[in-house]
Simulated scan of single mutants.
Amino acid sequence: MDFYLMANQILIVEDDLEIVDLLEIHMKDLNAEVESVNDGLSALEKAQHKDYDLILLDLSIPKLNGVEVCRELRKTKNTPIIMVTAKTEEIDKVLGLEIGADDYITKPFSIRELKARAKAVMRRSDAANQQTGDSKSTELDFGDLKVNIEMRRVTIEGKKIDLSPKEFDLLVLLANYPGRSYSRSELLDVIWGYNFSGYEHTVNSHINRLRAKIEPDMGNPIYILTTWGIGYRFNEDI
């Protein structure tokens, strides 16, 4: 279903009331019902108890900053997040992407660009959810490692493994096509989206964290293998 047919639920997290007013006006143009909060603790509480289609998250907010909100939310939710901030240092952008933000835009920003990015992020999220629902199997069984796609649950020898949303999506994509090698740019495009061009190291970081959680021996992985000169693949011999 196209997301235009239903009202999108958007949460604005921003402590500058003038910017909040501006964002509310233009996000409503995307057929959205908009809510806003001005601190991180309120944002986290709302986002944990309601499913939003998009969160516009300012980095410098009181009580709990945007990075901390994103990090905590990513432990349980895959809600699309665009970080909005006045900071332009590269380290801030990289940090935002590393902890699971879907996109990043700096102030002052073009409203047209922000709306385009918001629509793109929501479309990618909608497509990813459909892709997960259309996966070849609702459960993948690799002996000790089992992946229940519908429940987003991973177990090893019956023990539940806690994965972040992006780690889970990476695992499902690779495990659905054992032996198929994906380049880092392909994984960025499928899992994160086109706006992440040039941030291939983000894939490496997530793959390393995924391996740390599912591999018996990080030095000799048996599930997620490296295809030298290309990227990564799921072991086709399991």
Rank of each mutant, 00 (worst) to 15 (best):
F168P: 05
W192T: 04
M151K: 14
G96D: 14
V94F: 08
V172P: 01
R180V: 08
R180L: 08
M122K: 00
S110D: 15
S181C: 09
I191R: 04
K213T: 04
S185T: 15
N176Q: 13
G229N: 07
H201Y: 11
G100M: 04
L114Y: 12
E139G: 00
V190C: 05
G219K: 14
G198R: 14
S110Y: 06
D144M: 06
R153N: 10
G231H: 08
P216D: 07
D134T: 04
K136V: 10
A212E: 14
S197C: 13
D102W: 09
M218W: 04
R123A: 14
H206F: 05
I207D: 01
G96W: 05
D162S: 04
D169F: 11
R152Y: 03
K93A: 06
A116H: 00
E236G: 07
P178G: 12
N208P: 03
V154P: 00
S164N: 02
L173P: 03
S205K: 12
I222N: 00
K213M: 09
D162V: 01
I222Q: 03
A128S: 11
E157W: 13
Y194T: 12
V172Y: 02
D92K: 04
Y223G: 00
D103G: 06
I191C: 02
S135R: 04
K107L: 08
I191E: 03
L171V: 08
N235H: 09
I91F: 10
L95E: 10
K119I: 07
E157S: 12
W228L: 10
H201W: 07
K166E: 12
I222V: 13
D102L: 08
S135I: 04
E98W: 05
L174N: 06
Y223S: 02
A128Q: 12
M151Y: 09
D134A: 09
S197F: 08
